[in-house]
Design a protein around this nucleic acid. Sequence first.
DNA 1: TTGAAAGCGGTACCAA
DNA 2: TTGGTACCGCTTTCAA
Lengths: 341, 341
Amino acid sequence: MNLKELSAHLGLSPTTVSRALNGYPEVSETTRARVEKAAQALGYSPNARAQGLATGRARAIGHILPVSHQHEMVNPIFGDFVQGAAALYARHGYEVVISLVEDIKEEAAYRAIKARGNVDGIIVHGPRMADARIGLLQELNMPFVVHGRASDIHTPYSWLDTNNHRAFRRATDFLLDLGHRRIGLVNGLEFMDFAHRRRAGFEEALLARGLAPDPALMRSGEMTENYGFASADAMLSGAAPPTAFLVSSMIAAIGVRRAIQDRGLTMGRDVSVITHDDDLNYLRNGIDVPIFTASRSSVRQAGRLAAEMLMKLIEDRGLPPQTHLLEAELIIGSSTGPAPL
Amino acid sequence: MNLKELSAHLGLSPTTVSRALNGYPEVSETTRARVEKAAQALGYSPNARAQGLATGRARAIGHILPVSHQHEMVNPIFGDFVQGAAALYARHGYEVVISLVEDIKEEAAYRAIKARGNVDGIIVHGPRMADARIGLLQELNMPFVVHGRASDIHTPYSWLDTNNHRAFRRATDFLLDLGHRRIGLVNGLEFMDFAHRRRAGFEEALLARGLAPDPALMRSGEMTENYGFASADAMLSGAAPPTAFLVSSMIAAIGVRRAIQDRGLTMGRDVSVITHDDDLNYLRNGIDVPIFTASRSSVRQAGRLAAEMLMKLIEDRGLPPQTHLLEAELIIGSSTGPAPL
DNA sequence: TTGAAAGCGGTACCAA
DNA sequence: TTGGTACCGCTTTCAA
């Protein structure tokens, strides 16, 4: 059932039927009612491609996942983020299109996405410090919102981020307040913007107490369990091992905890661990780590916010860049908690 | 840059340029080379909507997530599944379109998806026992692959599933072999097909040893942490509490373990827990549960397989239904393991 | 208030 | 081997 058939069925022109269905004012109310009833009854839905071709709008948002050859950056929070966003898009009649883009072919890929024309806007995931995608999308005049930020880019653009700096500043302060002086940082890849900010927050807290960050206690890498294990193991076998760890990812934290256990040390007594990027459920389960929340529900919430921002930008192209900074919570109600020294 | 402009630039007709770019044999090699070079240089990419309108093919696959008003069925494995699938689609030039569909409006939504025409095929997630979507999609002549199965549907259709029955049969046997006789089943909603099959496997194992399934030790519900807690707590406070739990989801298992701990019982000594739907990482971390794998990587693998099946169906409409049954592994190498009685 | 007709950017048939 | 032309299904000007 397409527009032509529907209009023939009604004895009207396609023009009138289109206008009736799209809420144009010049259609008589009786006609509109008749058209809407018939459309409903016959199960007519406009063909999105034809509509898009005629209007130049796709009514779809692209979510771009960078995939890298160097490191397998499967982002575990992506699913929740998209789920939150999709719920909002659906309410506004937008679809979600997901593309995996290899970082090598990035520029060509974005240009092709623009040319292919099946999205009206883009959510950029996993920004690097000096992410070339931002300038590129601006040049292409494609509306976009970055989930995260790019510290080295100084032109204004729309983003939404958690306050990684403050979260790690507070987490470090918390450990320092407990008396810890040698804290190991197991961080993500530091060309990723979030990892950079986390490290900055960590160092700021140390410096504020007159402590010099010790390079031997700071690691950066792709956040796998093995990376967490290797990092913690190396630090623990050093001359002056840490009494606490601040870990940028729950997955890496698993490795860190394994390294601690393998040495016969006791979590929460000999060594403490605080981690980010996690779900509160783990906490309630009595695992002895306080957690900076990037809980599943908070990630969905971020997705919803990002969707809202982007749709606003698409529908009002004159809008200035939108930004939003979410605060991470430090949860301390764990069963044992990090050990004071 | 569109086809018309490109062809004008080359002094050729749009027809010829289109043929050159799409690999038609009747174009001379010199022309093709010239066209391809120019397209590359000028950054031409065909407009997907126009192409789709002309060909009737969208080069996109829809992933439909049912959202329910009764229960918040956010599927935690969805992200990984889509990630696996998307990697395969990308290789074949397909995009992924995600739609959230409310179960109430299901029929209308699927008809609209068909009519809108921006996907060539659909992956159905979260099938129920007698899932109406299967008949509907067949009626609509829309290629589809179900992730899971629908036991009450007997017409042939394409699906890909893990062997839930066998996984739970084996898990139960394992506990029975260790001497457990009172095993609590904390299952998903049993109108969901996977939960039904898991229960069947559980009961089969009991019956095979002449044990009658005890309704007091079997629960069905949406798999949240609180549900796991409430279920386990109720069972443990019963007249004859279970000595082991078989739990259909890691999230619910967290609640189960909390209930055990709250009673002062020790996991892996007083009460054992086996769970499904989990990541091996937890195991390696020494948590004392053996696990039926639906690990993140295995879910991605399932996504890849489903994508492959669906693209085959789309490209060869005459193909008979494709099916694929994945076996879940029982991993027993945990640090403590379930306690023998 | 309604309709005819010209696109939107491609593809594919038919003719040359 | 190449080009002209109709058409995919809808929107939107312009005219009636």
